[in-house]
Design a protein around this nucleic acid. Structure first.
Lengths: 141, 141
DNA sequence: CTCCAATCGTCAGCAACGCTGATGATCAGC
DNA sequence: GCTGATCATCAGCGTTGCTGACGATTGGAG
């Protein structure tokens, strides 16, 4: 029970989360900010689009974008095609912050997985990818 | 970035957590209650002992034990050796509830890991156990 | 064209969570 | 017998993710 895969997964997920959180402290960001910053690089997305793509709540997204705007990493611009929408654009500072964050996150991940050999890390990646891709089966008890 | 092992681990951990939560709905318990219920089976532990063993906060433990007592699954008894302490004892109902919970959790885990083959599940278990055992390295960025 | 339901972004406020600090009771060492 | 530490408890704080409501705007039906 203590050593069940499921329990360990929960524990590990939490630890990894805290780990990633900390790794971004110097940027004043949290992983969710980076995820949003990443999404808005390529396409011009509305806040709703971002919600759908990241799975975040609409009100949480407002807070995240407030943060990114305050830090000068992104801007909200009125959409030219739909005046209800705001198109979210990254700034130059946002783009370089994203690069920096990616480096930090990568470093944190390497450290976190350091107890495993290269082969094992590859194995783990395959397994969790399969599990995540499997759509996280619906609970029906 | 989207498919990094670390990010997937966080996602998976959260999903597994919610999964386990749901699986215990019918018992009115949450995984933490089951963990406590499990710990008090063998030894006579004080609340502080339980905190140390489970890593839970002392005030959270109070709430958990309140729940378990209200459900008739555990009792607080004054320690005979130290009148500051409460020894936490499982009731018969608590013991059978634990058995039932273990079954439900096991079922949930099987379902959650069902996208993997038996060999892969074994592999995953070894890997996450190694990572968890490695003491979750300290972040120092 | 005129409504009307639906969508967008925002805000106030709620419920759960984990924690800090303080309290009263008790213990252990000097 | 005093003093500092430990135990269980409670009140209260800050954070988090969410619901519900709101005004503004859109798009389609009649």
């Amino acid at each position: 029970m203590e050593a069940s895969t499921g329990y360990l997964l929960v524990k590990l997920g939490g630890a990894a989360g805290g780990y990633f959180d900390q790794s971004l402290d110097s940027l004043g960001l949290r992983p969710r900010h980076v995820r949003v910053l990443d999404r808005i690089q390529s396409d011009a997305l509305s806040q709703q689009d971002l919600c759908r793509l990241t799975g975040m709540d609409r009100t949480t997204m407002v807070a995240v974008l407030d943060d990114l705007e305050r830090l000068g990493y992104a801007r909200r611009e009125p959409s030219t095609t739909d005046r209800r929408k705001h198109v979210v654009m990254p700034t130059d500072a946002g783009r370089s912050a994203l690069k920096e964050a990616a480096v930090l996150l990568r470093k944190a991940e390497v450290a976190f997985l350091s107890p495993l050999s290269a082969t094992e890390r590859k194995q783990l990646n395959v397994l969790v990818a399969r599990l995540a891709e499997a759509g996280l089966p619906v609970c029906e008890t």
